[in-house]
Structures are given as structure tokens and as C-alpha cells.
Amino acid sequence: MNRTERRRRRLLELITAGEEDVDVLAAAVEVSASTIRRDLAALAEDGRITRTYGGAVPARPLAEHPLTTREALHRAAKAEIAERALDLVEDGDSLLLDAGSTVAAFGRLLVGRRVRVVTGNMALVAPLIQAGIEVTVLGGVVRPLSMGVVGPLAEAVLRRLTVDKAFLGADGVVAGRGLCEARPEQSALKELMMAQAARVVVLADASKLGMAGQPCWAPLPGAWTLVTDAQATDEQIRPFLRTAGVAVLRGPRST
């Protein structure tokens, strides 16, 4: 990733956090206002922001892609994150697994581990059961795009359970703000997942850090862990490290 793209990613983070003014954005990334205007024009052309008088705001929500499409995106990064996240799993753990392709990649690596799993990720249910892992399936309505369950039935089951660790994905994750999703029922379920877990782990590749392409939010707890891939830059990671209670694991699994 070159310097211009790193700067534009930082601008997206600032705009997502609510900053709109060109002069303030210029001071934050230490470039001229004219450079910021060119950056904003490029970001608007890409559909990542909407220009306003004197600044910019986040663009309208991005279109959701089906699970099969998302599984093909950033495949190497997701595999790296899944391997790294295994460092957080101990024998005997009870694990809550969210929907999504990155969590699915992690879940498939649990074969052979002595754990118990609670999940609404329908893509994982059969493989985990066939591997001999005890699985509790959340009820609810299945979203075909994600193959994950949502709704009051899923929430009712989840309120009766607690787990050691919850592993969550998201369409985007913003330091100090939370996880973004396309639908309010998704963000509501994620918020409840975090409340029912002793430890919260978010699995997100570099493309999702600081990104807010969807309108619905699940606030993060005071303490949580981000697992990302080696392509995540120091600039992307810095806002998370500045947030009290946040631990970051980046890059290949430790040996």
C-alpha cells in the first residue's frame, strides 16, 4: 500500500468518526488543504465518501455480497487471521462463533480441538458436528447472504448462555466506535454476543480496519482483542492501540 492510499484510509477513519472539515483533516494527516481536496475527490469518485460543502461524510451503505463471493476475497489474509486466532483457544473453552467468512475460516481450524461451540453460522454447523465437536445452534431466521441467523429467536437462546470467548466478524471496525453491519438485527445480535462472552475477539482483515461502509453499529466492550493480518499498516493499527483495553494481534501465527 503506497503513501497516498494510507493517507486516504486515514481520512476515511476520520470522516467515519465524524470529522468533515477540510482544514481539520489536513492538519490531522499533515498535508495541505489542496491535497485533502484531491484526496476527497478521489474517494468520492470511488464511492467511499460523499462530498459536502467544506468537507465530506461517509458514503451511502455498500452493497452486501453473498458468502460465496466474500469467501474468495482476501482469502490469504483470512487464512492468516484464522491461524493467528488459534493462539487464543484453550482446551475446554466454550466458544461463540459469529457468521461471516473470516469466522468460518477460523471455525474450520477447530477440528481436533477439545472445545464446545455455540453458533448461528450455518456454514460451520455440519463440519463441526462431523468433527465430533459439541455444537449448540442458535435459532432464528437465516440470512441467505451470510448464512447466519438473526432475530428474536437467536437472541432468546443467546440470553440463556454464557461462553468463554466470542469470535466475531464485521463489515467494518472503527476504533472507539464499534462494528458496523448492514442490518440492525445483525448489530443487535453482535452486541448481545459480546455481552454473553468473558472475552471478545474480532477477526478483521486490513481492508475492514477503520471502514464504515454500513449504517448499523454494535459498540465494543471496554476490553477486547483485534486479530488482523500482516497487511494492516501501523497507521491503521494505531487508533486501536490508543484505545484503552484493546489488544492487537497482527500477522502470522506465533510459533
Rank of each mutant, 00 (worst) to 15 (best):
R9V: 04
R10C: 08
R10E: 09
L11G: 07
L12N: 01
L14V: 05
I15M: 06
A17N: 12
E19K: 12
D23I: 15
V24Y: 09
A26S: 11
A27I: 04
A42M: 09
D46W: 12
G47T: 03
T50Q: 11
G54K: 04
G55I: 00
G55R: 08
R60L: 15
P61G: 00
E64D: 14
H65D: 14
P66A: 11
L67Q: 08
L67D: 04
T68F: 15
E71K: 13
A72Y: 06
A72H: 12
A77C: 04
A79E: 14
A79R: 09
E80M: 09
I81R: 04
E83K: 12
D87E: 15
D87I: 14
L88R: 03
L88N: 03
S94E: 08
L97I: 07
L97R: 01
D98N: 01
A99M: 09
T102V: 02
A104D: 00
L110S: 02
G112C: 09
G112D: 12
R113N: 03
V118G: 05
V118F: 05
G120K: 01
M122R: 15
A123Y: 09
A126D: 11
Q130S: 15
A131I: 11
I133H: 04
I133A: 04
V135S: 08
V135Y: 03
T136M: 14
L138Y: 03
V142A: 09
P144R: 15
S146R: 06
G148V: 03
G148W: 04
V157K: 11
R160G: 13
L161E: 13
T162H: 13
T162Y: 12
K165P: 06
A166D: 03
F167A: 01
L168K: 07
D171R: 14
V173G: 02
R177M: 11
G178C: 08
A182N: 10
L189T: 02
L192W: 00
M194Q: 07
M194D: 00
A195T: 09
A197Y: 00
R199I: 10
V202D: 04
V202Q: 08
A212N: 11
A212Y: 08
G213S: 14
P215H: 06
W217L: 09
A218K: 03
A223V: 10
L226Y: 03
T228H: 01
T228N: 07
D229Q: 09
Q231A: 13
T233M: 03
Q236D: 07
I237V: 10
I237D: 02
A244W: 11
A247Y: 01
L249G: 14
